[in-house]
Design a protein around this nucleic acid. Structure first.
Length: 810
RNA sequence: GCGGAUGUGGUGGAAUUGGUAGACACGCUAGCCUUAGGAGCUAGUGCCGCAAGGCGUGGAGGUUCAAGUCCUCUCAUCCGUACCA
């Protein structure tokens, strides 16, 4: 008998699948479609790690399951190949990012294939190729055309290591998302001219649609918090001795009588004007020092600081004079960058008031009613908020206003390795976006990829490339040296997967309308950034009529990460994670690795790495192999091999169909771990049955084995393909083979009834399936163990749960 | 702080509408077998107890014939977030 040898069969089938294009998707197929994918990979020199193995196996199992069920299933593959690591590597190693990608990506091909993932390689997408980024640039042009891309000079988070601007989403614990190590610097602020995408225009619809998404709840919640909608009002305060007004945003207009001071953010444009002569020096000093501070420093400072400006504002509700302070606990980026402070009802204002000895006036009592508020006394908070804003609005001093935490998406990066922003800067016309027919703006080849040193990217060194004629006035001008944030590339790649070679359009709308949204999407990261950007861009593509869907991903599963045995993260820098290829090559094979990762825990939990785990699933697969080999070695020529007794056949088919039902339901519901355990249980039962009943080349045994193998196929594609073939099939198990549950085998002649006395288990009895309540209770009482507990006692109550349980209360 | 989740054997984890707690796997124990291997097979394995039986899902109450599951309080851990006016 052959032993199970993954080292032999896995490469064999990988080669056959490749040669027969088994996983090439026909996007125009008449079959129902299914698209399952994981967030695509950022290729680095290190190759795949066990976390990738986890992510892509999840979507692969899904794609395989659907393909077996008869869907035209698409499991795409691509590379998010622009970005910093490749550029930094290029600076260090002295080879161009183009060159290093050309080396790295083919190595990934080998690894993906070794994992047995059913990717469609004909439609592979690489974001750093001009064929792809032409359309990333095109997207920029279109967004600009529709008023959703604009340029603005702003204080931006700046990573000194990357020498580039960062979006809020790219800051992790006050540090750059690429440099969050212990010795890495905290981010700084720098005023830079940037391009922005106006995602805030879509804030409301994104927020509203979030509720209905079939996504992991925690991601939905993060997105809601990230958008951070709040309803309030803007209120104008007149300034003593100044023409200008000070506008504040508040959600608590009801507390207007409790305002005892105003606070401006240090960056506020009125700070300079409001600082009186006596206070000027101190204000300037404070502002200078506050702007330098980083978010991390502000966080660690528990004490509120600030300075008095010397000026006063007039409270529009009662004309009282209120002192104006400058303090860094007020942020310039939120609301209007200025607040009305109500120390009695806001903790931060209270801390500030206590530190600077300012008045605290309570205006709301414990019953949430207004006090010390003149004609508004007695109103509830909700009533007063409404009425005060209405009253002030009559004289134009207040307007209702909705505010969002979410900022516009900054997309400019001062880096070489990205899609050039398709803009020409002309002395006369300013920044001019290129017309479509001048795309792509191809990234020039360079030898030195370091930022130019003047705040611009390395592209400033490409002197020939820099020269371009202004599309408006045709005068000589200079190209933009910033490139696009890589999140732009990844915000629309799922569309390109559907039409990767199209030279005329970003993608074909007919195909996209058939295939979008993606049915299943998973990943262990990017809850807010990428997943929000992709939703935004999809909505934009819908608005301009390119696709009928508004959401990119129907189902999003936020899976857990693979961690060390104690639950701690594998460190990238230490490289202490297990190497999937090493595990495969050591003889356990990809099937055992895949099965372990999917079996170890629910997908949302992630898997804890246990070095005994893969040997465990390898044992399971070996047992599947061995029983099949033993079955195949039975004599198939004799007449009595045809059939086994009806009762035995029924036993076999009963466990078989129970398993089919369980696995089908679990795969649909993404409960992979219990699907696998059901298959293990079924296999154990087959081993037991083989000793108890006739083990022969019979239809029942053939069906039992084949069904089990089909159910395991999404997890372990190689061994199942091999056994399928050995069982006499010439087609692939992976296409259009999924068994139907036959209900007749799910019922049985007898049922097991649990018998309790006073809620405690006393017996399990087997009764006829047709038995009624009286009959079941009669048999329950007849049980000797039950009898010993009820004998001589009065039965107060008999509870009967049909087909399940009897409980005697004595 | 706030928001969200999760607490079940030595370990990872199972348990439809409340109805046999611990499926499946790892580990461990004993026995068998052999081509002595990273094997394979069989049996056992929540805790206490010789047993009958009792106890048991972070803790304390409660509802119920019956609670891992529902309610109240409480503790712990993890994740997200960070002065959002």
């Amino acid at each position: 008998m052959n032993r199970y040898n993954p080292k032999q069969i896995e490469p064999k089938w990988q080669k056959i699948w490749d040669e027969t294009n088994l996983y090439t998707t026909d996007l125009k197929s008449s079959k129902p479609k299914y698209m399952a994918m994981s967030m695509f990979n950022y290729p680095s020199g290190n190759g795949i790690h066990v976390g990738h193995a986890m992510n892509y196996t999840i979507s692969d199992v899904k794609a395989r399951f659907k393909r077996q069920q008869g869907y035209e299933s698409y499991h795409p593959v691509g590379w998010d190949s622009f970005g910093l690591p490749a550029e930094n590597y290029a600076i260090k190693a002295g080879i161009s990012p183009q060159e290093s990608m050309a080396r790295i990506i083919p190595a990934y091909h080998q690894q993906y294939k070794a994992m047995g993932w059913s990717n469609d390689w004909e439609k592979e997408v690489t974001t750093s190729t001009p064929e792809y980024y032409k359309w990333t640039q095109w997207l920029f042009v279109k967004l600009h055309e529709h008023g959703l891309a604009y340029q603005d000079s702003r204080w931006q988070w700046w990573c000194t290591k990357c020498q580039t601007v960062l979006a809020n989403e790219q800051i992790v614990d006050g540090k750059c998302w690429r440099h969050e190590g212990k010795d890495d610097p905290i981010v700084e602020k720098k005023e830079v001219k940037q391009w922005f995408f106006k995602i805030t225009d879509y804030a409301d619809e994104l927020l509203e649609a979030t509720e209905d998404l079939d996504w992991t709840e925690s991601v939905k919640l993060s997105q809601k918090n990230w958008i951070g909608k709040s309803s309030g009002a803007e209120i104008d305060f007149e300034l003593k001795g100044l023409e200008e007004k000070l506008t504040v945003y508040t959600t608590r207009a009801d507390t207007l009588h409790g305002v005892t001071f105003m606070v401006l953010a240090p960056e506020h444009h009125l700070v300079e004007k409001l600082a009186t002569k006596e206070n000027q020096q101190e204000v300037e000093r404070y502002v200078k020092q506050a702007i330098k501070k980083t978010e991390l420093e502000r966080q660690s400072e528990k004490k509120k600081t600030g300075v008095f400006s010397g000026s006063y504002a007039i409270n529009p509700i009662n004309n009282k004079q209120i002192p104006i302070y400058v303090a860094d606990y007020v942020l310039s980026g939120y609301g209007t960058g200025a607040i009305m402070a109500v120390p009695a009802h806001d903790e931060r204002d209270q801390q500030f008031a206590e530190a600077y000895d300012l008045d605290i006036v309570q205006v709301v009592n414990e019953q949430d009613k207004l006090i010390n508020s003149e004609q508004y006394n007695g109103l509830t908070v909700a009533e007063a908020t409404e009425q005060i804003v209405d009253d002030l609005a009559k004289s134009g001093k207040a307007t209702k206003k909705t505010n969002y935490k979410m900022r516009d998406w900054s997309v400019s990066r001062q880096r070489y390795w990205g899609a050039p922003i398709p803009v020409v800067n002309c002395e006369d016309c300013g920044s001019v976006v290129l017309p479509e027919d001048q795309l792509p703006v191809v990234l020039p080849e360079l030898t030195d990829f370091k930022p130019s040193g003047d705040g611009r990217s390395a592209l400033a060194r490409a002197t020939d490339w820099l020269k371009a004629d202004c599309p408006k006035c045709s005068k000589p001008a200079e190209r933009e040296t910033d490139t696009l944030d890589t999140y732009v590339c990844s915000s629309w790649y799922m569309f390109r997967y559907l039409d990767p070679h199209n030279q005329q359009m970003i993608f074909d709308s007919d195909i996209a309308n058939n295939w979008m949204p993606v049915d299943f999407y998973n990943g262990a990261d990017h809850a807010t950034a990428h997943l929000l950007y992709a939703r935004f861009i999809t909505r934009f593509l819908n608005k301009i009529g390119l696709v009928s869907t508004v959401e990119p991903f129907t189902k999003m599963l936020y899976n857990g990460k693979v961690t060390a045995k104690d639950g701690s993260a594998f460190s990238k820098t230490l490289g202490n994670g297990p190497d999937p290829l090493e595990i495969i090559n050591s003889g356990y094979g990809a099937d055992a690795l895949r099965t372990y990762l999917m079996f170890a825990a629910p997908l949302e939990f992630g898997a804890r790495w246990d070095s005994k785990g893969v040997p465990g699933t390898h044992r399971f697969l070996s047992r599947l192999w061995n029983i099949t080999e033993e079955y195949l070695s039975l004599d198939s020529s004799s007449a009595d091999s045809e059939a086994i007794p009806e009762k035995e056949s029924r036993q076999l088919l009963s466990i078989t169909h129970k398993n089919i039902k369980k696995v089908t339901e679990d795969l649909d519901a993404n409960r992979y771990n219990t699907a696998i355990s059901s298959c293990m249980e079924t296999l154990n039962n087959l081993y037991l049955l083989k000793e108890k009943i006739t083990f022969s080349r019979s239809e029942a045994w053939q069906t039992a084995l084949e069904s089990l193998i089909i159910c395991i196929a999404p997890f372990a594609p190689h061994i199942t393909e091999e056994l399928w073939q050995q069982l006499g099939h010439s087609d692939s198990i992976h296409v259009d083979h999924w068994p139907k549950v036959d209900e007749q085998y799910l019922t049985s002649d007898t049922m097991t009834i649990v018998v309790q006395v006073n809620g405690k288990l006393r017996a399990n009895i087997e009764v006829d399936s047709g038995a009624d309540q009286a009959e079941v209770i009669k048999q329950a009482k007849a049980n000797s163990n039950v009898d010993s507990f009820i004998d001589g006692k009065t039965i107060k109550k008999e509870i009967y749960i049909p087909k399940k349980l009897v409980n005697f209360v004595v």
